[in-house]
Design a protein around this nucleic acid. Structure first.
Lengths: 193, 193
DNA sequence: CCATTATGTGAGCAATTACTCTCGTTGGAT
DNA sequence: ATCCAACGAGAGTAATTGCTCACATAATGG
């Protein structure tokens, strides 16, 4: 019997290293060549594994994208969580400045990557996923704003995220000087109403 | 003689209609299926012309994209120009509200298109093109802001454009209610410093 | 040692794509 | 009527891509 021998399933330790290598390679390919350069052969080659191996760990191309999106989101959310702790006792303007500086630093590291991941996230429709509200970026921000007495904190959190993202995306290629200050001005203006 | 018979060159009247059909088809394909659905066969089919014809009017796929980007940019810049005239005598907050409302309306019509065109514009690197400063979106905005006594009007124009674009992009899929009001709040906050 | 399983490999296939080239059609001038 | 240049059509081609599969190698257990 055992007609169907329960395919796939590498699991465990080795897989973690290979998967990480693949995801890092995917990030590099996207950053260097954009969406059009993102193909499984290129990713596998840059990761130093064969395409066969890549397909042992990921069911398909989109799964690699999705995993990368989740990884980057988790990274940023972890940074955000510690930053929020550190600013818990600061007055609002200083707290906002710290958070904005964090976002700027995060986007500056790989200017093109975040933009592409954002587009792809929409295409794949995996917006709500890890979404324990407390772990999402907007979720954390919502709680922060609510704690500061901001009205409609959920909407405000979304708006601020979009505002910051938009200003960073655009300005990185044009006028990065003093960017944090400029963003803080807009964000505080929004919050003061 | 005339060994090479001076290839291509359809020009004149008919071309305008065909080119317009191709560009409108390209916009529809992008809006409906995203970047991955954007291929020359699909565009030609939707436009109701053969691929042969498409390639008579456009030297390649990217040229179609570029033409579409320029067309949409020109459309928006024309709308912006008339809106700026109409708001010339209004106080700043009302003027800003009108302009923001225009941007919101423009993006709402085809929510996905602008985002994609923006990404592609960067990939093709055709930022400065039509760029008679007075015809660009930022150029027009810069003059407007300068006339209102805003400091660093060029930087402010860029920032505002990015801020508005970011907030619209993000909010269209989440909380479109009262969007204009919220954006105006951020924009005016930025301008008041 | 061998047998059995887990893991990795990469040539190759099927599908898709951008683009070309040959040929048919049209419409106006002679 | 005949010709000719402009225009359109769409089958075909070469290249690329996502992905499979038959096989090599490494780990594990007896």
């Amino acid at each position: 019997m055992n007609a169907i021998t329960l395919r796939k399933r590498p699991s465990q330790q080795r897989s973690a290293a290979t998967m990480a290598a693949v995801l890092e390679a995917a990030a590099q390919v996207l950053e260097a060549g954009g969406l059009s350069a993102f193909n499984t052969n290129a990713v596998a080659a840059r990761a130093g594994v064969s395409i066969g191996s890549l397909y042992q760990y990921f069911p398909g191309k989109d799964a690699v994208m999705a995993a990368l999106i989740r990884l980057e989101a988790a990274r940023f959310e972890a940074e955000l969580a510690t930053a929020l702790e550190a600013t818990a006792s600061l007055p609002l303007p200083q707290a906002v400045e710290r958070l904005v500086a964090l976002a700027v630093a995060s986007q500056t590291a790989r200017p093109n990557l975040a933009r592409i991941l954002d587009l792809e996230e929409r295409r794949l429709g995996l917006e709500i996923e890890v979404t324990q509200r407390s772990q999402t970026t907007v979720g954390q921000l919502t709680q922060f704003l609510a704690g500061r007495g901001v009205r409609d904190p959920q909407i405000a959190a979304g708006d601020l995220q979009n505002l910051v993202r938009g200003m960073i995306d655009g300005a990185l290629h044009a006028e990065p000087n003093d960017l944090t200050r400029r963003i803080v001005r807009a964000a505080m203006g929004y919050l003061r109403g």
